[in-house]
Design a binder for these strands. Structure first.
Lengths: 203, 203
DNA sequence: CCTTAAAACGAATGTTCGTTCTCTTTAGCG
DNA sequence: CGCTAAAGAGAACGAACATTCGTTTTAAGG
């Protein structure tokens, strides 16, 4: 049996991605809530019925998009840390900011990440996913701190997780300034980091 | 003429605030978009008609709430900087984080600020307001940096605006970690700042 | 205490939305 | 080439929504 009128597996995956791409464009333009299903479906050039063959609901679509967005953030960070041997903190942060800087533009991942964060406050499933991914990212910053400590560029008694948290904080903190205020540029920000690292001991 | 059946000015203001308080509670619980007008109106114990006497639309309500929330963030920062004479950077940041820490809880202002930020990406009017207030807050961090430089705790040739940007970035960056990951606690984060400030010069 | 207009009310409205369901088309298989 | 079941289409539906509007209540002025 198994009469099999099905279409190729690749075609199904392509259709699904076609919807995801359309949704990403719409969400970036208008946000999750102000985007109607019709918007997404029209953007994808499909019919309502076709959409609901690939996603059970709008919420499932939002979650899928969120996973892609957060996953990309994590990957970006992975790349930066893969550099060997570990350069000084300022260089690590420079490379990091230069890598993520394009993502701060209106069609980058950061504006959407902002929406995911806000959404995760009232969507426990999404919150759990966000926690998993960002925990992993945080872990990489801890590793960076450990590398720096091993290289003698941090006090021997410093807590790597504490330093990792501070380094981690600078990335979304900087992103927020860029998105909301439009400044400073990466070089200025990096100069600020350098100045703080070279603060004379006066305490 | 002027038959005047009006109620006292104070009563009008109180009613308005009553609505704002109810809205804040609802928005904190469910977010701007998932909160219906009926939710807000019921929470306030009013009628639909009464609400629309005080606000033209839901959007106007959201804007009013956003203004209150952001205004409070700014005020908090103002207080911390008013301390004289300026303590060392670590102490400034300690005081700052201790002041804003309660605001990271689910009913604090930070979760709502997150929503305001996300919302401002597609509401130009709100975006302009956010820019104004956060610009002012940023300015205070620049002043902190200048104070520190004058006290010899930063390199003489450092750019205060660059240092201010970095210090500023740590606050929302830390808040995000607290809200999304639940850690680290303020003391650990502050220890991380201390470790970075005391990094041995190896470059 | 009666008049008057603001204030409050809440049923009604019209729209928009996400989703369902039935029908048609398509593509693989024998 | 015809059979079959999946894929796609889109009209239709019901729920939820923000807002309006005609009416009732309230309180200050004369």
């Amino acid at each position: 049996m198994r009469a099999m009128p099905r279409v190729s597996e690749a075609h199904l995956a392509a259709r699904r991605q076609q919807i995801l791409d359309a949704a990403r464009a719409c969400f970036a333009r208008n946000g999750f809530h102000a985007t109607s299903m019709q918007d997404v479906i029209s953007e994808a050039g499909l019919s309502v019925g076709a959409f609901y063959r690939y996603f059970k609901s709008k919420e499932e679509l939002v979650t899928a998009i969120a996973e892609q967005v957060i996953g990309r953030v994590s990957d970006l960070l992975d790349e930066v840390r893969a550099i060997n041997p570990p350069p000084p903190i300022e260089d690590v942060m420079r490379r990091l900011l230069q890598t993520v800087d394009p993502q701060f533009s209106p069609d980058g991942v950061f504006p959407m990440a902002l929406q995911v964060w806000a959404e995760s406050l009232r969507n426990p499933e999404l919150a759990a996913f966000v926690r998993t991914i960002y925990g992993r990212v945080r872990g990489h910053f801890d590793e960076i701190a450990r590398d720096q400590q091993a290289a003698g560029r941090l006090p021997a008694d410093a807590d790597p997780e504490a330093v990792g948290a501070v380094l981690f904080s600078m990335v979304p903190g900087y992103a927020l300034q860029r998105v909301l205020l439009g400044r400073p540029d990466p070089d200025t920000f990096l100069a600020g980091i350098t100045a703080l690292l070279h603060a004379p001991d006066k305490n």
